[in-house]
Structures are given as C-alpha cells and as structure tokens.
C-alpha cells in the first residue's frame, strides 16, 4: 500500500461513507505543460473555489481526497482521463460537472461524471490499458511496423544502470482510426504494465525508424483508459 492509499484507508475507517464523483476530463493547451503534482493542485484549488463539499484526509495536513486514474506526463494532452473526488455527502454528478467547470482554468474540462457509492478499489488500481494518439509527420508507418515485430528493444535506466527492455509485449494493437500523420494505438497502462508514449518514441528513434527532430515535435494525446484483462476490457466509469 502506498502512502496515499494508506491515508485513504485511514480516512475511510473514520468516515462512515465515501461518496465519489468520478469524472472524465480533458486537458489541452497551456495546461498540458504542467506536471502531475501541479495538475493535482490545480484541481484542488478549483474544487475549493467551487465550494464543493470535498472530503479531506485525516491527519496533520488534511488534503482533499482526489485520485487520478493514471498520472499524466508533461506535454501530453488528454481526452479520456479520469479522476475520483470524494465528497462528504451524496452529490449530484451533473451538478459537480457544472460547478467544477466554472472554476477550472481554460484547457481543463470535466466532460461527464458518475457517482460511485463507496468504491471498493482505488481508481489507480483498476487501470490496465490506454489508447494514445501520436501526431507527427510520417509517424504512422514506423509505429505500425512495430506491431509486426517480435521484439522492440530499447534502453531503460534502472537503478542507475542502463538496461535493455523489450517493449513489444506492452503494445496491444493499432487502432483503425489512424491516418498517415496521426497514429492511434492501444497499449498496457497502469501500475503493473505501462508503456509511456515517450518511451515508444524513443524506441522508434533508436531503431532508426523516425528522426529525433520529428519526434520532439510529436504531439501526444491520451484518448481513453480502460480496466479489465485485455481483450476483456471495460470502461473505467463502471469499475469499482
């Protein structure tokens, strides 16, 4: 159990009930250039401005109880990320969407939300796969080629050493919606198996399939997150 989950556990024990508003959100523009912790703080402040009855963790330094399904790297847009906000009382998800959107800075928006009564698992632990879109000139062919390979080796830093890793098993499938300069694919994501798009781009450049300059300009969007065991996957909103 990590520290955040521990706190959650503590809080859960003290409160009778936890009412979660689970929201699907998008991020683009200026807001895409901040890190994950900053994004969390931006949401926290928006929730406070909106005057929502958010639940705070217990302990010395009470924090609003909000959990993201998967961290979002600097520079990545999203159309399909989820976050759970715990409320002190049952709260209408549509009202939540309306109020938080009035306070979020431009570029961040909660698209829709559902309410979950007493979730069994942290939203972080249910994520297993993600869909991404990478836009760059001529990106699609080299990415699709990866799917026909047996292995895709790249170097990864681990405990101060560079080690070889094969990222091929982390790739699931290309999506049919790809166009020549915009490739969409599904890969493993979450706390156990995870393929970050920048690692994929790095592997691509190392294999000579793509130029570093083009890769640096590539725009990455997370399209969706899923839970469940591939191919038996399901939408995040229903998973508790």
């Amino acid at each position: 159990m990590n520290a955040q989950e521990q706190l959650r556990e503590m809080t859960r024990k003290q409160h009778q009930h936890e009412y979660v508003c689970r929201g699907l959100f998008e991020r683009k523009g200026a807001l895409s250039y901040i890190g994950h912790l900053d994004l969390k703080a931006v949401f926290e402040r928006a929730l406070r401005r909106a005057g929502l009855p958010i639940l705070y963790s217990q302990g010395f330094n009470p924090r609003p109880m909000i959990v993201f399904a998967l961290p979002l790297g600097v520079g990545i847009d999203t159309e399909g990320d989820w976050l759970d906000v715990s409320m002190e009382v049952p709260f209408d998800p549509d009202e939540y969407v309306r109020r938080i959107n009035a306070e979020l800075p431009e570029g961040l928006k909660v698209i829709r939300a559902v309410s979950i009564d007493e979730p069994q698992n942290s939203i972080m632990s249910v994520v297993t796969c993600a869909e991404y879109r990478i836009e760059a000139k001529g990106i699609t062919k080299p990415v699709l080629d990866l799917f026909s390979k047996q292995e895709v080796i790249t170097m990864k830093k681990s405990k101060g050493r560079e080690i070889e890793v094969d990222i091929r098993p982390l790739l699931i499938k290309p999506l049919t919606s790809s166009t020549p300069d915009s490739v969409e694919y599904m890969c493993y994501a979450g706390s156990t198996k995870n393929l970050r798009p920048d690692v994929l781009l790095k592997a691509l450049c190392e294999s000579g399939g793509f130029s570093k300059e083009e890769a640096d300009e590539a725009r990455v969007t997370r399209i969706a997150l899923y839970g469940g065991e591939y191919p038996d996957i399901s939408a995040i909103e229903g998973l508790t």
Binding site: G29, A30, L31, Y33, I34, G35, D38, R45, A46, R49, V74, G75, E103, L104, P105, E106, G107, E213, D216, E217, A218, R219
Partner: peptide, 20 residues
C-alpha cells in the same frame, strides 16, 4: 513557441500562461 522547445526546458509551465 514550438512544442519541442517547451519540452526541452525545465518547468515549461512558466512560459505558457493560461492561469485562473
């Protein structure tokens, strides 16, 4: 500012505005 420039510097959020 090109995306690649923003991605190559420390704390790119400094250079984009868009605050509440």
């Amino acid at each position: 500012v090109p995306h690649s420039v923003l991605m190559s510097v420390e704390s790119p959020g400094r250079y984009v505005g868009g605050e509440k």
